[in-house]
Amino acid sequence: MSTFKLPHIRKRSCRPYPESGAGTVEYVIVVLVAIVIGAGLLAFGNQVSGQVSKT
Rank of each mutant, 00 (worst) to 15 (best):
S2M: 05
S2T: 05
T3C: 05
T3E: 09
T3W: 04
T3M: 08
T3K: 09
T3D: 09
F4T: 05
K5F: 09
K5E: 09
L6G: 01
L6M: 06
L6C: 01
P7T: 05
P7G: 02
P7L: 10
P7Y: 03
H8M: 08
I9T: 09
I9P: 00
R10K: 13
R10C: 03
R10F: 07
R10S: 11
R12I: 03
S13D: 06
S13W: 02
C14M: 05
C14K: 15
C14L: 11
Y17S: 07
P18H: 02
E19T: 06
E19R: 09
E19I: 07
E19W: 05
S20M: 03
A22V: 09
A22L: 13
G23H: 02
G23A: 08
T24W: 04
T24N: 04
T24P: 00
V25L: 15
V25I: 14
V25A: 15
V25K: 10
V25H: 09
V25G: 07
E26I: 15
E26A: 15
E26Q: 13
E26N: 10
Y27W: 10
Y27G: 07
Y27T: 12
Y27S: 12
V28W: 06
V28N: 11
I29P: 00
V30M: 11
V31R: 01
V31Q: 01
V31W: 00
V31N: 01
V33F: 09
A34S: 09
I35L: 12
I35W: 02
V36C: 06
I37W: 05
G38Y: 03
G38C: 11
A39Q: 08
A39G: 12
G40R: 00
G40C: 10
L41V: 13
L41N: 10
L41H: 03
L42Q: 03
A43Q: 05
A43H: 06
A43P: 00
F44R: 02
G45S: 12
G45K: 02
Q47H: 13
Q47S: 13
V48C: 07
S49Q: 12
G50R: 13
G50T: 11
G50I: 03
G50A: 14
Q51T: 14
Q51Y: 14
Q51H: 12
Q51F: 15
K54S: 14
